[in-house]
Nucleic acid binder design. Structure first.
Lengths: 214, 214, 214, 214
DNA sequence: CATGAATGAGATTTCATTCAT
DNA sequence: TATGAATGAAATCTCATTCAT
């Protein structure tokens, strides 16, 4: 499967192993759910014995946590930076942000973890916490602040910044959810680009300050 | 225990039993997830023996299906009727629709089933199918049609009706999801009303036809 | 396996089952030790499935506890009664007590539980506690009190009552231990009677008050 | 690699290693029992890798055997010598022997092996055999012979020498067992000295030849 | 209609042991 | 000599499901 000679049993490459195991786990957890996936399946997919999985992760639950951690690391920071210091009309920044998320969601591998979290979080408070603390706690306030600043500067209509965040990102997320969970999507496929542009049209006008009528 | 005649001890009301079982199942599935709930727990909560559950439902999976069926039964029809024949600006109808959903979501009992479905659907194509066929397949086209008609009549901006549906309902659904899954909500609680009104403000302007300037 | 017709699978007699399981467990734990005995072995010996064992006992450890409890119930009371109110020379009572224990120890079934406890107690504080609290805490003070009263009344030499208890019962217990653990015993078998009588000879003289020589 | 020169960090003294492993094993087996102790724990405590343990001992069971062997090595000879050729009243020799054992038992490190053996012997005939053959087979006959000679010489009462051995050593052993297993001991601690002296008082009188009354 | 008793088939986790380096 | 990596074989415990009553 790799290269050179075929070493049947022992392969001894510890450094890569944990990641391989997490890859296998992600694929299976996403496809079947955490509870329905057995450690044996993860091991088999990673090309290891069950016991070897426990060499790297102390429990099945730890596997899930490590998985989420790995996926979540670095996700938030990128986007937040751009918003932090922004002054002026927030709409271009919001547009950029949505397009960025859309690009990420287009890759099923990236969409898999949030989907997994959405399903497992209710039963695993720790899983929910990881995502809440490492992603949402950073991104949501940044968005809220961005909008608040826009309102203050008169660049956008006087809306509730915190609630408006939902109006900004909700449509994109629901679009992906509908497609992934119920296979409900436009005839020409996921059409994320079109979805984003259509939504931005509405958002742009929806947030525009009232025309100071004469 | 319920009706008129006093048969307090020897209650043998066969007709209500299945519903009681489903009530128990819903509560438990919602709280712990389908896979983590045992038939024994459902039976205990319904005040029956495990075997009795199998008297009414042939399997644990059937329990879930029946549950979803029951919840979904009449949900769609109500809303669809109002949209079906509407002519003119769709925005008031959309507003009414959102307020209706919001009212329903405010009751945790009503929000439970969609949340459950969201989590179980990926692993149970049949569950996804029930919801898709009995709810989404009715509501989504109705909304799409309503918007298309609004565009055609010049009441709203020329948007893609199918994609705009996401912009209409997404914010509300994401709001509830954030609150339920990650406990992320405004300081003053779920604030569904405020969310809807804030969103409608944006939506109203966002969908408004371009001012024919000059 | 039992009587009448051969009912291959279901036997339905719940009342006797727990005791049958405990019997099986005692036999196996005694022969192989607790850690080396599997629940599967216990189940097989009791003529049940593994799962059925868990129907009656929530864990393997609980099996051990129930076992000890059952064996220990009522053991202490009998002997203690005779000592409680005794006045006068304690030696006949001690002799009776030792003969009673010896008779009990002659039956391997009775000796098994103390032997088991001796081995498992160090790792299972709860097991040690059961025996300590339900047997030793009753018998040892009774013996101590009996001897103290004998000393006070001048019937026996002024010995330390608490320590003398060891001199009374130690030889018998060590004899059984040597035989069971190392198969070290007289040529003619366990010879419990001879052991007790020989020990009583020594004890009788050993405890006798000093001849108040003239 | 080993010799003279000071290599404080890079210590590679192969010769001591097996003993260090046995030390670790003894501590752990005593504290947790053989079955509950893992080879990994032993290795960790000895500051080695698991595999290194297998370099010195072919199996976990061999570890236990070596342990017992080492502990047992010189134990017996000392005491036996004194008894072998004794002529005259055996009681002073018995007293010396008991005091010697008591002194040894006062050190938990010395008491650990017999306690361990007591627990593991029933499941490991080889372990029982080591102790039986290398300790008991020497000490018990020596004690028996000593007593027999005392009886023959009229120094002590005509008792059964083999059984009387139990009366001599049993109390001491039971005292230690009660303390170790059930934490049952005098208020002022293990009090081994007092126990021995109290027991010797009884034993002295108990073995004394009948007063040739007139 | 209802249930107590029972189980087969697994799931997670552990651990003594081995081997390439 | 020493070890990190790996595993086969088991052990405990769970659970959906069945059947005699």
């Amino acid at each position: 499967m790799t290269e050179l000679s075929a070493l049947p049993k022992f392969r001894r490459r510890a450094a890569e192993r944990p990641d391989e195991v997490l890859d296998a786990a992600l694929a299976l957890f996403s496809a079947q759910g955490f509870a329905r996936t057995t450690v044996a399946q993860v091991a088999a997919r990673a090309g290891l014995s069950k016991a070897a999985v426990y060499l790297y992760f102390p429990s099945k639950q730890a596997l899930l946590q490590a998985l989420v951690h790995r996926a979540v690391a670095s996700v938030a920071g990128q986007a937040v930076g751009q918003m932090q210091g922004h002054r002026g009309d927030p709409r271009p920044v919001l547009a950029g942000f949505l397009r960025q998320i859309a690009a990420r969601m287009a890759d099923p591998a990236h969409a898999a973890v949030p989907a997994l979290i959405l399903r497992e979080a209710p039963h695993s408070p720790d899983i929910a916490a990881i995502y809440r603390d490492e992603v949402l706690a950073l991104v949501m306030p940044a968005l809220t602040g961005l909008i608040a600043q826009g309102v203050a500067g008169g660049h956008i209509r006087p809306v509730d910044p915190e609630l408006t965040v939902r109006s900004v990102v909700g449509p994109l997320l629901i679009h992906v959810l509908l497609a992934r969970v119920f296979a409900i999507q436009p005839a020409d496929g996921l059409a994320l680009d079109r979805l984003v542009e259509n939504h931005l049209t509405i958002l742009d006008a929806g947030l525009a300050p009232e025309k100071a009528a004469s």
